[in-house]
Design a protein around this nucleic acid. Structure first.
Length: 487
RNA sequence: GGAGAGGUGGCAGAGUGGUUGAAUGCACCGCACUCGAAAUGCGGCAUGGGUGCAAGCCCAUCGGGGGUUCAAAUCCCUCCCUCUCCGCCA
């Protein structure tokens, strides 16, 4: 969420930042320009409506106070006169209130659908091709094999410990079941990442809910103000029950209003029917988190931290769920792109001054676990057009996969500035200054466990089809050195 | 799932229709005292929005939404959350 004041006062900066997201094309500039005009129009409309509404309320409040005084002074005539005036004011209120509410909702909706502004140093580009490899962050050299390296699913299936068909029978495409030593290897990776971040990098381990409400998804900008059907994650449903409940509630409320002497028609209008219907639509449904970024970051929602608590560094090992709606046909074979996968996530909450350095630190934490596993990788700075909605700057770590003969994303570290903090109302109180400021938030994978399993299988595979266990994982594998076909 | 009690500022905790944006305590900030500190005394201290060059003024906010009233932290409805008891359960 952007600050409307920023857009009001520095519209040129805003247009420039937004245009860069679109690769600075003429088209992008034009669209940003149009958007600013729309936002400024709404903002002016809003302020005008608020001002007239507040003037009316102000007069009403003053008159009400006077009524109290007049009554105390037993001046009934004056009281009657003032009550008549207030009655007149109250006739004008509903329309103005409605206008304020409508315009505010439109502005809010427009603002919450605008992506974050890229930092100035982020390379310009409008797609994956514009990403730039980071100097001095390449690690390791792809090994040479005396045979043609196989892909991870060929290895796993041949070992008899990775089965896509069994998974498909119960859950459909994009699910997998790992068994035996391979299942343990995946668990070992998760444990190893978590232990490293807590013991060596100062993160606190958190075991958060992975089913969350709309507000939490909105807070981390997974969700705009209202969800749309393209949104790539899953949710639970509870529609029938919620609808029945809502009907019951509305009926009760209307009955109560009629009991107060209000005619049935306006009673129905006055019952919070709209809210009830909305409630029914939402029901008790919850979202399955696409990443632990959501619950970890929402840990600070609606709170004011003290500066001493910052930076807050949190890590979690969780399941993640993604619908992958926009990825039809991509990575259909294997474990690269699944509806359900395990990931270790890191989240940092910092002061505005510290967030840029924190991004570098977070990147190095993610790199550290790959180095311990001796997996070759490179680091890409994502260009303006390839970054996620809420990010100001993103590094992707791409791990080498000999079976695919390609570098593939295994971690993504982003700094979001105050973008998520605004949406969550997450602030801190600076030592020097008493008014709270929005915190900055960062998130990064440390790293994706499913993809790490893929990388280990492909990098540590041997000609006879077995897989060597990386030294760093030995303590987690109960002494197992090699993963072989089960007898 | 059933019954009951609650939700007030950074924290604790008063406040059941009228000048209460909210007593008091703690925390925090400034000043005084002190070589310094503690203790003590005095003063300050909510957030968001509108308006104004500014000082300031105005509006909203006592879990969220709606209603009653000239006027709501206070009365009514509803949702959410917390706690206690019962039931069920990993």
């Amino acid at each position: 969420m952007h600050d409307i004041k920023w857009i009001r006062e520095q519209p040129a900066d805003f247009v420039a930042a937004l245009s860069r997201r679109g690769g600075d094309s003429e088209d992008a500039k034009m669209r940003a320009d149009l958007l600013v005009k729309k936002l400024q129009g709404l903002d002016e409309q809003r302020r005008a409506a608020v001002t007239s509404l507040e003037n009316l309320l102000s007069r009403r409040n003053a008159a009400s106070k006077e009524i109290g005084q007049a009554k105390a002074a037993k001046d009934d005539a004056r009281a009657q006169e003032l009550m008549a005036e207030v009655a007149k004011i109250k006739e004008q209120l509903p329309d103005l209130e409605h206008e304020v509410r409508t315009v505010e909702a439109m502005l809010d909706d427009a603002l919450s659908n605008i992506p974050n502004a890229p930092l100035s140093e982020v390379p310009l580009g409008d797609g994956e091709a514009g990403n730039v490899e980071r100097e001095d962050h390449r690690f390791g050299t792809p090994r040479t094999y005396g045979f043609t390296p196989r892909q991870h699913f060929e290895i796993g299936e041949a070992l008899g410990q990775m089965d896509f068909e069994k998974a498909a029978r119960m859950s459909g495409a994009r699910f997998v079941v790992n068994m035996g030593p391979l299942a343990r290897l995946e668990r070992a990776l998760g444990q190893f990442f978590l232990d490293t971040h807590t013991a060596e990098h100062g993160y606190m381990e958190v075991n958060p809910p992975i089913l969350v409400r709309d507000e939490a998804m909105y807070g981390t900008a997974q969700l705009p103000k209202f969800e749309n059907d393209q949104f790539p994650t899953f949710r639970t449903e509870d529609f029938d029950h919620a609808l029945a409940q809502a009907q019951e509630n509305v009926a009760e409320q209307v009955a109560a209003l009629i009991g107060q002497g209000i005619d049935p028609k306006s009673a129905l209008e006055k019952s919070n029917l709209a809210a009830q219907v909305r409630k029914a639509q939402i029901g008790n449904r919850l979202w399955l988190v696409p990443t632990a970024e959501v619950p970890l970051t929402n840990l600070v929602r609606e709170s004011i931290l003290s500066e001493e608590e910052l930076p807050l560094r949190l890590t979690a090992l969780t399941q993640c769920f993604r619908a992958e709606a926009g990825a039809a046909g991509r990575d259909t074979r294997g474990m690269i792109r699944q509806h359900q996968f395990t990931k270790v996530e890191m989240v940092s909450v910092t002061t505005p001054e510290a967030s840029s350095d924190e991004l570098e630190r977070m990147l190095s934490c993610a790199e550290a676990v790959l180095k311990k596993l001796d997996l070759p990788f490179r680091v890409m700075t994502l260009c303006t057009g390839d970054m996620g909605f809420g990010s100001r700057k993103t590094y992707d770590i791409e791990v080498w996969l000999p079976g695919q003969n390609a570098y593939r994303e295994i971690s993504s570290c982003s700094v979001c500035g105050d973008f998520q903090a605004r949406r969550m109302n997450a602030r801190y109180r600076p030592k020097a200054d008493k008014t709270p400021r929005f915190v900055h938030t960062l998130n990064g994978s440390g790293v994706a466990v499913g993809r790490a399993l893929v990388a280990v299988l492909e990098n540590y595979q041997q000609e006879n089809g077995t897989v060597a266990v990386p030294d760093a994982l030995a303590p987690y594998m109960g002494g197992l050195k090699v993963i072989e076909k089960l007898s």
